[in-house]
Design a protein around this nucleic acid. Structure first.
Lengths: 328, 328
DNA sequence: GTCGGAAATGTTTGCGTAAACATGTGGGCG
DNA sequence: CGCCCACATGTTTACGCAAACATTTCCGAC
């Protein structure tokens, strides 16, 4: 900056004013400064800026992985929304979501150049009081039930599940089987609980639960283990549903004629599955938007407002569900 | 920091030494300082650190979107690898990859707190000399042919395509149709060129090319337009291949008995498609690793080494391809 | 006892920026 | 014609940290 000032024949303060587009600089001077900037390839040093302002204009995102279905879309929405507000986002990946690793990420994050963090670890470790964010850090948590201690943005998992299960029951299926996600996952647990609740409320038998790890492959394995009397399955995400479709196909059970399948997420591919998948639509982008909005508000006001913000879901009926026909 | 120093009864320099784990601090003093840090919840200010050191320990990633299949996996690998080297990564999303937007991102990036950038915009704008990174910025570009001006890490698109097309020809198909990605995409063009080259080398007729936008939905539409005489299709990515499978299914054309389909990417779901998809495996994680490695080296040495680093690909044969049987 | 030297700790300084304050310069108005 | 004010620009300072240098302390050797 000093070099620019010298070349333009002005003080560094004037350069600063030009760089920030402040008024009070006469046009001819501005031109000179801009020319000097171009010539020297001047670019402001954001570290110094941050130091001066005490803010980084950066948000951190702590996540377990981008590969899991919705995360990348949520992160994308966060990035877009943050960019619109003049914030950059920094990714803090946590390899394996063990307690130690998560704690480690929180610690590192504390030293990172961020004004606040969004936590998307998908694992209900935050519920345990042993794992806590450093005090004084502005944070918004996605998909957790730590709503009493943190500001939480969550998809309305329970409602989406209810819609899915009721849809199947209304089609005349005697009951609905369930293939859940990993037990450590908060979302998986929520969906499983809601599934069980609907069955119990309506007096249906509750079949044993299947488990997968969100991957299509695990869904395939779970699908192979489904008993023959099963005529309706609610699968905890679309990718596992894809695996279930394949398993049922290999076993010669036609979908939807013999078995109805419902997924969760409504990823872009779901409408191209064979058959196109009936699934619960989740608005990842909206989750991202609300996270950023809530976090920026928290940073701006300086106070956290614990509580849970639920983003609605809705069932999208496609070709993988049909009315139950009793075995003739 | 000054507060900690006062509370511990030492100078701020000693606090600094403790914070950085330097030697030359007697145990009792260290204890006191650590205690004071804990009590005050002290966390070092990374802006000041960066300002002092002149480095941010942060890499920027300029990308078009995380939704496109491989990007999220590449970014994940980048994040993991960077974290291992003590670097954080900052995402710089570019909404629509127009020239203006990309230029804008480059400009913003110049002001960002990063030591270098990885560009994953998937669009061959960088080839045009009109769009250039700010001079003096350390950069590595993914999937581009700007290898003469930048350091490029690329998947061996051409070789993967050759393997795919030859595989189909060896199965006895008279020729191979192609459904390409968007014309703006560098990868799409590379794959289309390689496909055409193999057909020409082997003296096969070159059928008209189909186009999609990488989405399953667009693959579905392209699949509906395939003529009846088509017995083998090479689709530019797995998601479009999924759409093609659906289109063929709806048209009553059996895969692989009547039509063989090959995809590209080998995403996790591909093995669960109906039928499991034969596809070209791409090592996204390796791409990410090499990017980070190359970039860190460039930052360390201060000099760029333009050139292209090709990550190999290989064909994974599954159930969507079979020997050609002449129409009887 | 004194001196040298090593180890522990303190002091000064500058990284690049922008706010706050200081200075200069010109024009309008009484 | 002089005064004052508005506006353009310059100077000083502090942000938090750590390198470089300065000082203190303590120990052993003579």
């Amino acid at each position: 900056m000093a070099d620019v000032a010298k070349l333009a024949g002005v003080s560094s303060q004037t350069v600063s004013r030009v760089a920030n587009g402040q008024s009070g600089v006469v046009e001819s001077t501005r031109e000179q400064v801009l020319a000097a900037m171009r010539e020297l390839g001047y670019r402001p040093n954001s570290a110094a800026r941050s130091l001066r302002y005490g803010r980084f204009n950066t948000l951190g995102v702590i996540l377990f992985g981008l590969s899991s279905t919705g995360n990348s879309r949520t992160v994308e929405a966060i990035a877009t929304q943050a960019a619109a507000a003049g914030y950059a986002i920094t990714l803090i990946p946590v390899g394996v979501p063990t307690q130690d690793n998560v704690l480690g990420a929180f610690t590192r994050m504390g030293e990172l150049a961020v004004d606040g963090v969004i936590v998307i670890i998908e694992v209900h470790l935050l519920d345990a009081a042993t794992v806590a964010l450093p005090p004084g850090v502005h944070a918004v948590v996605v998909d957790s039930d730590a709503g009493e201690r943190y500001q939480v943005v969550d998809t309305d998992q329970a409602d989406g599940t209810r819609q899915a299960v009721r849809h199947l029951l209304e089609l005349g299926h005697p009951t609905v089987w369930h293939i859940a996600g990993p037990a450590e996952s908060y979302s998986a647990e929520r969906r499983a609980q809601a599934w069980r609740a609907v069955l119990e409320e309506t007096g249906r038998p509750v079949p044993p639960i299947g488990r997968g790890d969100w991957s299509a492959e695990s869904g395939y394995r779970a699908g192979l283990s489904l008993p023959d009397e099963c005529t309706a399955v609610f699968v905890a995400n679309d990718q596992m549903a894809l695996g279930v479709l394949r398993a049922l196909h290999e076993r010669g059970r036609r979908v939807p004629e013999e078995v109805s399948v419902v997924g969760f997420d409504d990823i872009a591919d779901a409408s191209s599955y064979l058959p196109p998948l009936t699934t619960v639509h989740q608005d990842f982008a909206e989750v991202g938007r609300r996270c950023v909005h809530a976090l920026l508000e928290q940073i701006g006001s300086g106070v956290a407002a614990p509580g849970t913000d639920l983003v609605p879901t809705h069932l999208v009926v496609r070709g993988s569900t049909a009315a139950h026909r009793s075995v003739s």
